[in-house]
Structure formats: structure tokens, C-alpha cells
Amino acid sequence: MILQKHNTNTQQPVYVTAVFAILLLFSNTLFGQAEIPKLTITPLTDDFYVYTTYKDLDGKPFPSNSMYVVSDKGVILIDTPWDESDFQPLLDSIYKRHQKKVVLCIATHFHDDSSAGLDYYKKHGIPTYTSKLTHELSVQEGNAKAAYHFEKDTVFTVGNKKFETFYPGAGHTQDNIVVWFEKEKVLYGGCLIKSTENNDLGYTGDADIDAWEGTMKKLINKYPKPSYVIPGHFAWDSPKALQHTLKLVKKKR
């Protein structure tokens, strides 16, 4: 159809413009300006869902995993989207899928791949939580902050879902916590845990490499038999990620 249509002013085929656009698209891709994928949501088990958002790092889309859990009283959000363009679409997608609103949000450390959406969700009336240490680091770094913070490991109950936060020690950051759902044996490790796809520890600018090994041993001892482990980036749900992270830390040291 485009090949048969002509511009009345120049008498040149419009397909020239179309071809130019296609070439520009390929050029952008070849030179690293790949299109950032949209928010994806993947069922994990029962009422648990892993959602993945992306950021452009060095011209390539980089995935960040987070999680939400559907209870009979609303949805629990563990970490926020990385990119602000996904803050509202996530809420919209959750409501469309489950006809429920997010009623609680917890961020597991102060980096923006965990906490970027805290201010946005706080302004939309969603109770937001972090540890006290995460709050202090967020203030120090000028990052988004939660409305509430807890000083020690805390148990939360939202409708028929019960979970606990646990601080095993410094690792990826000084403040990284994990979230554990005992009944379902789901461990959300966030960026403290490295995917089995990772060959290194990734960004370590705020890490405590010396403490990380002991932190992992403490975490493995605390939750020795999880059914699912969710790391902060790349492939998720393999319990092997715990031992894999420990191996990477030992190699780094």
C-alpha cells in the first residue's frame, strides 16, 4: 500500500520516508540504542508474582526483579519499579489482573532499583516501609524515602498473608534486607542475592565484600530450604542462587 502512494508536491514515493525510518531504527539498534522493554509480570506460585522493569545501562536494557503478593485484603508490593514510567502502569496492571489495590509497599535497600517509587506510592496513599538504616541512607543520598521505617526484624500480616523482614548483615549494601514468606517458602532476596546467571557480583560501589560472606552464611542458616529465591536481577526462583552468591563472594575476596 505504501509503495503505491505518492506525495502530491514532490511526486516522490512515500516509501522512501518509510525506508529511511526503518534504516534509522536499525541504525539505533546497531549502535546500542535498543528499545527498553516494557514492564513484565510473571506468575511464581499461588498468589505470588515477579514483575520485571528495565533501565538503559550503557545502551542496553538491564532487568530488575521485584515481587508482589495478592492477599484477600489487597496487594503487597516488595520493592518498586526501577523506572518512573512504570510506577503507575504497575498499579494499573495489578488492578486489571486482580481487581485489588496495593495496600503496602516495602523496599529492601536504598538503591533506586529497589526504592525509586516510594515517594510516588506514598503520595498515592499507599503505606510505604523500609528499615531504619535504609531510611537513613536514603536521606543521606537524597533518594526516595518511605513514610514509615522499622528498627528491627518485623513480622507483617496483610489479610491471609504473613511475612517477615530479616537483616542478615551487610553485603550488596549496608542496609540490604530480605523478605520471607514462611508458609509458601518464598525468599525475596533482592540485590543481596545474585542470580545463577551472574558470573560476578555486579555493582559493588556500596558493597561490603568482607562482610558479605558471613551475611550469606547467616542467611542460608536462617532459611535452609526455600522453595523459591528471588534475586534482584536476571533469572530467578532457583534456591541454588544462595550458594551461587556465596561462591561469587568467596571468589571476589
Rank of each mutant, 00 (worst) to 15 (best):
P37Y: 09
K38M: 10
L39K: 01
L39T: 00
I41T: 04
I41R: 01
T42Q: 11
P43M: 02
D46F: 00
D46H: 10
D46A: 15
F48G: 00
F48H: 08
Y49W: 09
Y49G: 02
Y49A: 00
V50R: 12
V50N: 10
T52E: 08
T52F: 02
D56A: 14
D56H: 09
L57G: 04
D58T: 09
K60T: 12
P61A: 12
P61C: 11
P63K: 08
P63A: 08
S64P: 00
S64D: 08
N65K: 07
N65S: 06
N65H: 07
S66K: 12
S66M: 10
M67R: 03
M67D: 04
M67E: 14
Y68A: 01
Y68L: 10
V69S: 05
K73V: 06
K73P: 01
G74C: 12
G74T: 11
V75H: 03
I76F: 05
I76R: 02
L77Y: 03
I78E: 06
I78K: 05
D79V: 06
D79S: 14
W82E: 12
D83S: 14
E84K: 15
D86Y: 13
Q88T: 11
Q88C: 01
P89T: 06
L91P: 07
L91I: 11
L91F: 13
D92Y: 04
S93P: 02
I94M: 05
I94Q: 02
I94R: 01
Y95W: 13
Y95T: 07
Y95E: 15
K96P: 04
K96N: 14
R97Y: 10
R97I: 07
H98E: 15
K100I: 02
K100W: 04
V102W: 05
L104Q: 10
